[in-house]
């Protein structure tokens, strides 16, 4: 690529690489900033921002955050709902999509109609709120679980498109041998659909882990707070405390009360530490998940 290339061509290559490096820096730096900011002492952070490395290194913010019962409760709520929803909704949605994908299913057009209507029409926030309230899901842990158990028709369409790549002869042979539909699903379809199931699981798990809307809209107890919601409250309180002392969220107030009058930590360093902790599971999972989700985004885009 060196010899025989014109000056213009080389200049283009160099500029291009530089643009990409700048973009990568802009992407990565904020995360690095959170890491070093949370590891710096609060007193030092008051004197000016840290850039590449903490000036006065301390684990104090992490010790504070990890010893907080409110935060541990939030981790438990978030992690448990992520695991339950991902496992159940992916398994059931795959099963639903299998039954739906059968050409010999009678009344298939009714299922298609119901599915498509559900994708484009909904009641919106307030009617949903009232429904949850009526069902007793408001301010109940189950609000994180029950409405999410079925992954929705969009996932059914993706899975349905994927099942088409499984040769028909496999199903026919199994059926002739007397296998039930359930058995065909668990023994043939699921093992052969591992890549797409992995991709959808990644999307579902990340979506649930990152969700704070459910907490914001449908709960009020501090014992039901999710990790993202708690971090949000920390951010909002830090921002607000610079202007006025507003009504504090009890779990946040508890964290901040201990912060007062100590030099090593401040609401800002605690907030950064909580952000880093909330990001860790996604960042750790990310390299393993990467090979699946690119495939996932493309199967979603297939136009039939």
């Amino acid at each position: 690529m060196v010899a025989g290339k014109s000056f213009g061509e080389r200049a283009f290559n160099v500029t291009n690489v530089m643009i990409m490096c700048i973009l990568m820096f802009l992407t990565l730096y904020p995360f690095w900033y959170a890491v070093i900011g949370s590891l710096d002492s609060a007193q030092d952070l008051q004197t000016g921002p840290v850039f590449l490395w903490p000036r006065v290194f301390t684990w104090a913010s992490y010790r504070e955050v990890l010893n907080d019962p409110g935060l541990l409760q939030a981790v438990w709520v978030t992690a448990s709902r992520t695991v339950i929803v991902t496992v159940v909704s992916i398994t059931y949605t795959a099963l639903f999509a299998y039954a739906y994908s059968r050409r010999y299913l009678k009344g298939k057009k009714w299922y298609t109609a119901i599915g498509f209507i559900s994708m484009y029409f909904g009641g919106g926030l307030i009617p949903t709120f009232m429904l949850y309230n009526w069902l007793g899901l408001y301010d109940n842990y189950l609000v994180y679980i029950i409405p999410s158990l079925f992954g929705g028709f969009w996932n059914v369409i993706i899975l349905n498109a994927n099942y088409k790549s499984i040769p028909d002869s496999l199903f026919e042979a199994a059926k002739m041998d007397g296998a039930s539909e359930l058995r065909i699903f668990f023994q043939i379809v699921m093992p052969l659909s591992k890549p797409v199931l992995a991709a959808l699981s990644v999307f579902t798990a990340v979506g649930v882990w990152n969700d704070y809307g459910t907490t914001l809209f449908f709960t009020q107890s501090s014992s039901l707070q999710t990790l993202q919601y708690l971090v949000l409250k920390l951010i909002q309180t830090t921002a607000a405390s610079e202007e006025l002392n507003s009504n504090l969220n009890p779990a946040v107030a508890e964290i901040l009360a201990k912060v007062q009058g100590q030099g090593l930590i401040s609401s800002q360093t605690v907030e950064l530490a909580a952000m880093v902790l909330a990001a860790i599971p996604v960042i750790v999972m990310y390299p393993f998940a990467q090979r699946y989700f690119i495939k996932g985004v493309l199967i979603g885009s297939v136009k039939e």
Binding site: A99, G107, G122, G123, P127, E181, L182
Partner: peptide
């Protein structure tokens, strides 16, 4: 019967969580 009973819970979910809120409109 087997296929329709596999689909039934999903349809139930769609009706409860997508269609019933439409009355709220």
């Amino acid at each position: 019967t087997e296929l329709h009973s596999m689909l039934l819970p999903g349809v139930f979910f769609i009706i409860v969580f997508h269609f019933i809120p439409l009355f709220g409109l």
